[in-house]
Design a protein around this nucleic acid. Structure first.
Length: 272
DNA sequence: AGCGGAACCTGTCGGC
DNA sequence: TGCCGACAGGTTCCGC
């Protein structure tokens, strides 16, 4: 489910639902994965703590706890948080179940077990957060801020867009969508991106992500499972997964290639 | 130092 | 029906 717009949507949902709740019970169902470090320390770090706020950094979810500490989560490919008013029935993908003092529940569910949850005293001690790049929706993300990262690499533009040490939040789907909208071929070396194109890249990245957030991230989520979201999903995406169908601008069939072991979709005519 | 590739794990889909 | 390979929205680690 998760690139920046989807994580932002989840964060906003959680913030509106569970700020003020206090952890009364923490059940780790998955033996080793998901929860980083010691399971007892994880439980102890959360019990009796109140959720003060829920925020996002890159694709990480950050629960701010009172009196102290943070719960840092990452959905990776298939992680999901579910809030429930009463005890949810167990299913095999649930990994961690939290009960609040109010009697409400929060469940972390994850088919592939790539997701992570970690309790921290301070955000500074997080290894994961240490080397993250610019937030694309912040004012720091400017054409100028990309000049050096683009200049001093031999990689192609697609792979730099996915590099969380440079820009955070862009994933495989939005990388293709952004490059399509500005007419840049995913295999173009980042070094060859001209100043004018950097400017377009920044502006388009912001607008694509903002538009997706405005659509509550449904541009991606549940694309296979939930029929009623399909319309919105298909309207938003112009190239991702559209391998073989005609480009909306010129009619040339959209092409799929593999870069860094991941699919890229592009129009061979419009993108150079 | 920077890069590409493998690994982490489970599920689904299409082809034979 | 069943088996097999390809593929899935992300990150981290390892070797060159």
């Amino acid at each position: 489910m998760p690139e920046l717009p989807e994580v932002e949507t989840v964060v906003r949902g959680l913030r509106s639902q569970i700020v003020g709740e206090t952890f009364a019970q923490v059940e780790v169902l998955h033996p080793t994965l998901i929860v980083q470090g010691d399971r007892d320390a994880f439980r102890e770090g959360l019990l009796d703590c109140t959720i003060r706020d829920v925020t996002r950094r890159a694709k990480f979810l950050c629960f701010h706890l009172s009196p102290k500490g943070y719960l840092l989560g990452h959905l990776r490919m298939t992680g999901k948080f579910i809030v429930a008013e009463t005890e949810p029935s167990l299913d095999k993908h649930q990994r961690v179940r939290f009960q609040f003092q109010s009697g409400r529940w929060l469940v972390f569910s994850d088919v592939r077990c790539f997701g992570t949850l970690e309790v921290l005293n301070t955000l500074e001690e997080s290894h994961a957060l240490a080397n993250l790049g610019l937030e694309p929706l912040s004012s720091d993300f400017t054409p100028d801020s990309l000049r050096n990262p683009f200049q001093r690499t031999s990689r192609n533009i697609k792979s730099v867009l996915l590099d969380q040490r440079v820009i955070v939040g862009i994933g495989n789907i939005y990388a293709s969508e952004i490059l399509y909208r500005i007419g840049i071929h995913p295999e173009r070396p980042a070094q060859q991106i001209r100043p004018k194109e950097r400017k377009q890249l920044v502006a388009t990245t912001k607008s694509v992500l903002q538009e997706a957030i405005a659509m509550n991230g449904t541009s991606i989520s549940d694309f296979r499972r939930v029929d009623d979201k399909t319309g919105e999903f298909q309207e938003f995406l112009r190239v991702y997964g559209k391998d073989g169908s005609p480009c909306g601008t010129c009619g040339t069939p959209i092409q799929r290639i593999v870069q860094q072991q991941r699919s890229s979709f592009f129009c061979p005519t419009c993108q150079r």
